[in-house]
Design a protein around this nucleic acid. Structure first.
Length: 577
DNA sequence: TACGTTCTGT
């Protein structure tokens, strides 16, 4: 059969349809002609049911309303009473960008003229899709009405659903009113870890003690949950006792304990445990945990060294941490290597902020060109990532390309794929400060709360004060300080004092003095010096002297400190008092 | 015709 003259895509043999589709189609757009063909010819009614699973898989990965509409059309027209297909769609939607459409699909199914009966596979997916208390109780009542309350898989998913939506009391009521023969180790782990991770350690502990022997010795997950919770609440030594006592330690147990030490900032204990961990059990999580521990203590060299010695394949999360080490060390070559590795191994830029970490690394290493090039070249993957946008906006702002930074910021505002957050506005405000763009800065600051409902933080106020002060708008800058809901810090006050000095506004400096006094002594010193210099240049010598003597008295009580100073590639040691 | 839940890292 020759379709060329009609302009139709030739249809593959029916029994190979799914195979052909899966191997040749990767985007929703490519799917369109096949979908149209299936629908308008009614062929969808004649193909084997499982052939409809592929279009569903593809459509449910896309968040667009038209994709949802298409999958709804497919299901309502062609699924009929075939439960496996409905379950498949409900499952895919439950972990899609729009989980609520999973519940809508369930309702669609029940409203069919001859509706299939939901089964033990339907409800776990619905529970996973549910996000609110109200939806949750509705699903629960359906479960009871249809007789699945004693199915342990369904039950566990209901527990998880309640715990996730914050209704821990309901989860616990359901748990306690269910006989032990309808519960298993997953039920125990779910309920105990939900309480433990909320800090209800006593309650978690008492439930742990009530567990049947078979769960206590046979389920490391429940031990791991307790260990994790102890460590998260500052009880790392208690966590360690449990770790030492537990039977059947698995990789997750070691990883939990290692991250417990990392969280407590105890890298020598973390590294010690990592070294003691059986080598063949060390997985990507173990390695990443220690590497990220080094980075969090700013021991970036150690982080990179361990990364080089890594014995398992790194994933997106690992590389994101390693890239932040590269950024801090300005290690561009290493960063490029990581980038190449990620490309070579098909790692996903949209996962675990890997894309944002790459953009940030390039920007912090001064290679803003590469940052920008990467962001736009991989825009399809990165346009959903607020932190990737932020990395570019901030990177451009601090690399002297403020105009471009603001263009990207405007473009992000117009985009429907990502929503600006506090960091976005900080980046845009930084750009405004660099360029002295007062009107743009005001508009930016204003729209942050008005359009996006984001509360300004200290740093945003700091930018505004800096921007206005440099432009000589001292009154307005002082107004910002007065309107701040929090106490101004050294950065804010010294920005304004700097402006006072340049514009010789001694009376404003006088007014700010009471604020400077409220600062911590260490931070206050900087501002006192600025004040003294303002008084001196205004000829108020006695005021200047008085301030300096206050400073000297304070500093005589302090221990001398040392700092390393790099100059011309040579490190020297400087004493500071 | 299908098939799943809990604990560990960023």
């Amino acid at each position: 059969m020759n379709h060329a003259h009609t302009g139709h895509t030739p249809l593959p043999p029916m029994d190979h349809l799914e195979e052909v589709l899966r191997s040749s189609i990767t985007t929703v757009r490519q799917l369109d002609p096949y979908l149209t063909l299936l629908i308008v010819t009614g062929l969808a009614l004649r193909v084997p049911h499982h052939s409809l699973r592929f279009p569903i898989d593809l459509l449910s990965r896309s968040p667009s309303p038209s994709s949802l509409h298409r999958s709804r059309h497919l299901s309502l027209s062609f699924f009929g009473p075939h439960l496996p297909l409905w379950n498949h769609l409900i499952r895919r939607l439950s972990s899609s960008p729009s989980p609520s459409s999973s519940l809508h699909t369930f309702i669609d199914m029940l409203r069919l003229p001859l509706p299939p009966s939901p089964d033990h596979l339907t409800f776990p997916f619905l529970a996973k899709a549910s996000s609110s208390f109200k939806e949750g109780t509705q699903i629960h009542s359906q479960v009871i009405r249809r007789g699945f309350a004693s199915d342990v898989f369904v039950f566990n998913n209901l527990l998880h659903m309640y715990a996730k939506s914050g209704s821990l009391d309901l989860a616990r009521t359901a748990f306690e009113s269910t006989p032990e023969r309808h519960r298993n180790e997953v039920s125990w782990t779910t309920i105990i870890s939900a309480h433990a991770s909320r800090g209800e350690l006593e309650l978690a502990r008492s439930m742990f003690d009530r567990m049947p022997e078979r769960v206590r010795v046979g389920c490391p997950a429940v031990w791991n949950a307790m260990i994790s919770a102890f460590a998260a609440h500052g009880l790392v030594s208690v966590a360690r006792k449990w770790f030492d006592r537990m039977p059947g330690r698995n990789a997750a147990s070691w990883n939990t304990m290692i991250s417990g030490y990392v969280r407590a900032g105890d890298m020598s204990a973390a590294r010690g445990l990592f070294d003691r961990m059986p080598e063949d059990e060390r997985d990507v999580v173990s390695w990443s945990a220690v590497i990220s521990g080094y980075v969090s203590l700013n021991r970036c060299g150690d982080a990179l060294e361990l990364f080089k010695a890594m014995q398992v394949k790194p994933n997106e999360a690992t590389l994101a941490v390693v890239l932040s080490a590269c950024a801090r060390l300005a290690a561009l070559e290493q960063g490029r290597w990581v980038h190449a590795y990620a490309e070579r191994n098909g790692l996903r830029l949209e996962r675990d902020n890997l894309g944002a970490a790459l953009v940030d690394m390039y920007a912090k290493c001064g290679s803003i060109e590469s940052a920008s090039e990467l962001f736009w070249r991989r825009h399809d993957e990165l346009k959903h990532s607020t932190s990737a946008w932020n990395a570019l906006i901030t990177g451009l702002a601090v690399n002297g390309r403020a105009r471009e930074s603001l263009e990207v910021y405007e473009r992000m505002r117009r985009s429907v794929t990502a929503r600006p957050d506090g960091v976005t506005f900080l980046g845009a405000l930084t750009a405004c400060v660099h360029c002295g763009l007062v009107d743009e800065g005001r508009a930016c600051f204003e729209s942050m709360s008005r359009e996006y409902g984001i509360r300004a933080e200290l740093k945003h106020y700091g930018c505004m004060v800096d921007l206005l002060g440099r432009a000589g708008l001292l009154e307005e800058a002082e107004g910002v300080v007065q309107s701040m809901p929090m106490k101004p810090d050294m950065v804010v006050l010294s920005a304004l004092l700097g402006a006072c000095r340049i514009h010789r506004d001694v009376s404003m400096a006088d007014r700010l003095r009471t604020r400077v006094v409220e600062l911590d002594p260490h931070e206050g010193d900087v501002c006192f010096l600025q004040l003294a210099s303002i008084y001196a240049s205004a000829g108020r010598w006695s005021d200047a002297r008085a301030l300096r003597s206050v400073l000297e008295r304070q500093s005589s009580k302090k221990q001398p400190g040392f700092s390393l100073v790099e100059s011309g590639g040579v490190l020297s040691c400087q004493m500071t008092v």
